[in-house]
Each structure stands twice: as C-alpha cells, then as structure tokens.
C-alpha cells in the first residue's frame, strides 16, 4: 500500500468518526425535539436559535459534573465499561461502503475504510461484542440494580442475536456474498434487497432495536424498575459515554440497514445522474442519498420510542424465542424454495 493510500484512508477514518460523533450529538437534540413534537410541547429552545446549541451545552455540563467512582466498585473495570461501549459502537463503521468509488483527477478514492470479504459477519461480531461494555460496567458498579440491568442486557442480546443471524442468512442466500461492497453494488438503481426480503428486513429491524437497547426493548435501563439500570452508579462523562454509544449504535445500525436492505448509496436513475455530473461529484450524491436513508431510519427509531411503551420482560423473551426465531427459520425455508424454483 502506498503512502498516499494510507493518508487517504486515515483522512476517511477521521471524517467518518467526526460524522458519527456529530450525528450522535445532534441525535440527542433531534430526540428531544421529536419527543416534544409527539407530546405537543416546544422542546429545548434556549441555547442558540431554536436551541441548536443544546448538545454543546449538554456536553459541557457532562464534562463539568463531579466524577464519582463508588468505594466498593472495581475501579479499572468501572472505567473500562463505558470505554468499551463507545469503542465497539465506533468500530462498526469500518466496513460500511459510504459511496461509489470517487475519481478526482487520476486518484480513485474508495469510500469504504476496509472491504473485507466477511463484512457482514464483522458487523455481526461487533454487535455481539457491544454487550460487554454494558455487562462489565454493570458488574463493576457493585450495585444490585446495575447488576440486574447488566444481566438483562446479556440475555436480551443473546436472544435477539440468534434471530438477527437467521434473518441475515436469508439475505445472504439472495446476495451470495458476505462483502458489504458487493451487496451494495448488487442493489444497483432500484433492485433493493427489501423487495426480495421484506420479512427478513422486518425481523432485522426488530432485532436492531433490541441490540441497541432502544424502546420498546430498553429493559436494561428500565427506570421504573431498576433506577437507572446498568448506569445507575455512573456520573459525569462516563455516563455520557454510555448515552452517546447508544446514539452512535443507532447511527451505525441505520447505516447497516440502509446498506443491506434499502440499497445503500443506490437510487433510481443514478446512472443518468452519474453521467451528467461526472465521476467526482456523482458518487457524492449517492452518499447524500445514503445519509438521507440513515436519517429516516434514525427518525423511525425515535418515532417508535415515543409511540410504543416498553415490553414486560417475559413478553420480550416470548417475542424473541417463540415468534422471531420460528419466523426467521420460515423465512430461510421460503427463500430457499423460491431460489430453487427460479433456478
């Protein structure tokens, strides 16, 4: 690999990190504004015009709060918990193709950090690793509510990972590849995978809600039963990391859903646009389309949060094991039959 390639990749990583963090920051603002809209309120409107400086004010508050590490907590793991949570949230973005190859002069820039040929499994691995941050933090706090939150997070993640994996298998039978770049390229213009896998997508998005601990699956931090759940003992920016990692997870899982099922950077009529704008501008329009899809998904996450109440724990387990897994297996069987019949 040449030096310029390395520098370009480094800049790309930097930009993706910056974008993830800024989107996570403004998701907190969007969440409050959308909640206000759903509840017929105004929402934050004091910091800056329309309250758009609110995330900065929140961040400043988080940093200036007193840092508390409980006496009986295991200090190293107490700090490792939120760090792991935010790290696993950030590394998922490495394999997502953000756009077509960009050509500036003679340089061809690949808008994807790493095109590994097990990309889908990498995403899946990162998702399954995400629970450690919550578990370690909850256990290290040495508090019964935190421990209960951590245990709930672990069992919930394991249960929903199975149906998520099964729904991905049906998708892989259609695409025939594990590389996210190839999956995105196969969905050229309007051949989006959602047309072939509607049930698979439904299962995937339900599991994505469960894996990111969003309502109606936010049992690990259920405040009516567990005070604050796994982050009861956390204060200051360590709490901020936990909250932040949830929003980054939301952004990354929206990007994954858009890439796997909703065509990624593809849109109808993209060839015409590409021919008229040239190879330096055209791919960026595709990237903008991808981000529009991601924002729609983030809006959907928030819409559901302020519409549907939280599940009870036994309902959560029933849904995961008795409904989603049989449906996912049925989906695999149907997909297999249809593929065999067509061939």
């Amino acid at each position: 690999m040449e030096l310029t390639d390395i520098i370009v990749k480094f800049i790309l990583v930097f930009i993706i990190f910056a974008i993830s963090l800024v989107i996570a920051m403004y998701s907190t603002y969007a969440e409050r504004k959308i909640a206000a809209f759903f509840q017929d309120r105004i929402g934050p409107n004091r910091a800056g015009p329309w309250g758009i400086l609110q995330p900065l004010a929140d961040g400043g508050k988080m940093f200036l709060k007193e840092e508390i590490i409980p006496t009986n907590a295991s200090a190293f793991l107490f700090i490792a918990g939120p760090s792991l949570a935010i790290m696993t949230a950030c590394i998922g973005s490495a394999v997502i193709p953000w756009g077509q190859k960009l050509t500036i002069g003679s340089h061809v820039i690949d808008l994807q950090v790493a095109d590994i040929n097990v990309g889908v499994l990498y995403i899946f691995g990162v998702v399954s690793l995400g629970v450690y941050g919550v578990m370690i933090g909850g256990w290290a706090s040495n508090n019964k509510y935190s421990l209960l939150g951590a245990i709930r997070a672990a069992s919930q993640n394991i249960s929903y990972e199975i149906s998520m994996g099964l729904s991905i298998i049906a998708l892989l039978m259609v695409t025939g590849t594990l590389s996210l770049r190839q999956i995105a390229e196969q969905q050229h213009s309007w051949h989006w995978n959602i047309l072939y896998q509607p049930l698979g997508f439904l299962l995937f998005i339900i599991c994505a809600f469960a894996e990111t601990n969003r309502t109606p699956f936010d049992l690990p931090e259920c405040e009516t039963e567990l005070v604050g759940g796994y982050h009861t003992e956390y204060s200051s920016m360590k709490l901020g990391f936990y909250l932040f990692s949830e929003y980054i997870n939301m952004f990354i899982s929206s990007a994954v859903m858009a890439t796997l099922y909703w065509g990624g950077y593809n849109y109808p009529g993209m060839d015409w646009v590409l021919a008229h704008t040239g190879p330096a501008i055209g791919p960026l329009i595709g990237t903008a389309v991808l981000f529009a899809k991601i924002f729609l998904f983030i809006f959907f996450f928030m819409w559901v949060r302020w519409t549907i109440p939280r599940f009870r724990y036994d309902q959560l387990m029933d849904l995961g094991w008795k409904i989603l897994i049989p449906l996912a297996i049925a989906n695999i069987v149907i997909t297999g039959i249809v593929i065999t019949l067509i061939k």
Binding site: V127, S128, L129, V131, I151, A154, E161
Partner: peptide, 16 residues
C-alpha cells in the same frame, strides 16, 4: 462471534 460474542457472554452471565 461464537466464542467471544456468545459463549463467553453466557459464562459471564452465569458467574454474575
């Protein structure tokens, strides 16, 4: 995925 993401999570879960 299998060892780090699933089996050891269950180990940790049981021990907790």
């Amino acid at each position: 995925i299998v060892y780090m993401g699933a089996i050891l999570v269950l180990f940790l879960y049981t021990l907790m």
